[in-house]
């Protein structure tokens, strides 16, 4: 979407959304609008049915866990008396500070009539990550919301059948949260004595092959290097 169209859309939305509106960003030609979690269903219905919006399709719904956003394993900016810091296996990040908006649900909408896209974001509280379901507005949200529930533990109020979808039957935990280890907690193997597949604690250890670093290369979008 070109910049002027993106700005026109974001201005229109900031007026129409009323109480639900929190903020909007136009970045790289994409419009992101943040709405209040309490007003999601009203806002979405408005986005689908109002002239100038007409977002007939929910293209994607993603959960995001922002608890370690902007934290690196390796501090590269300032040197200490012993030189630059070194990356360590555990990571040098602070404990994830509990924030009022740890989780986000990100909706990607597409309007076929007007050929425009929109990203709607809802920030959710860590202790009670709950948001209204949009299944009644777009039936495709059914599985997307089940996926976000499964992977992040985000609850969708009013969803008819909020079961796990991608993880194993009887899985415990929400694997895409940042505090869930990459290697998980349990592994399965075939037990020849019991003649069945059994669960056991994981036998592999986490290894950080490449530390996570944040460098400001002076790269700005659109600049030629």
């Amino acid at each position: 979407m070109n910049e002027s169209k993106a700005h026109a859309l974001s201005t229109l939305l900031s007026e129409k959304l009323g109480d639900a509106y929190v903020s909007h960003v136009v970045d790289r030609g994409e419009v992101t609008i943040t709405v209040k979690s309490a007003h999601v269903q009203d806002a979405m219905l408005m986005l689908r049915d109002t002239a100038g919006c007409q977002f007939e399709q929910l293209v994607d719904l993603a959960g995001v866990d922002y608890s370690t956003f902007g934290q690196a394993d390796w501090i590269t900016q300032q040197a200490t008396s012993s030189g630059f810091s070194r990356a360590v296996g555990k990571g040098q990040r602070d404990d994830a500070s509990a924030t009022a908006s740890r989780f986000a649900v990100v909706y990607h909408l597409l309007s076929y009539a007007l050929n425009q896209r929109l990203r709607v974001k809802v920030m959710l509280d860590e202790n009670e990550p709950m948001v209204g379901s949009v299944v009644d507005i777009w039936p495709v949200a059914d599985w997307y919301e089940r996926e976000a529930f499964d992977l992040f533990g985000i609850l969708f109020q009013g969803h008819p059948d909020l079961r796990r979808i991608l993880t194993d039957y009887g899985f415990i935990g929400h694997p895409f949260r940042k505090d869930f280890p990459l290697e998980g907690y349990v592994e399965v193997r075939y037990d020849a004595d019991k003649k069945r597949v059994v669960y056991q604690p994981v036998s592999i250890e986490p290894r950080v092959l490449v530390p996570r670093v944040i460098r400001d290369d002076g790269r700005t979008p659109g600049a030629v290097h």
């Binding site: 995001v64 866990d65 956003f69 902007g70 690196a72 990607h108 490449v210 996570r212 944040i214 460098r215």
Partner: peptide, 17 residues
Amino acid sequence: FGIYLVSDGANKPYRLK
């Protein structure tokens, strides 16, 4: 087929969907 990519300025994606 879409890729939703969130970056926090690091050498790894923050979130990829």
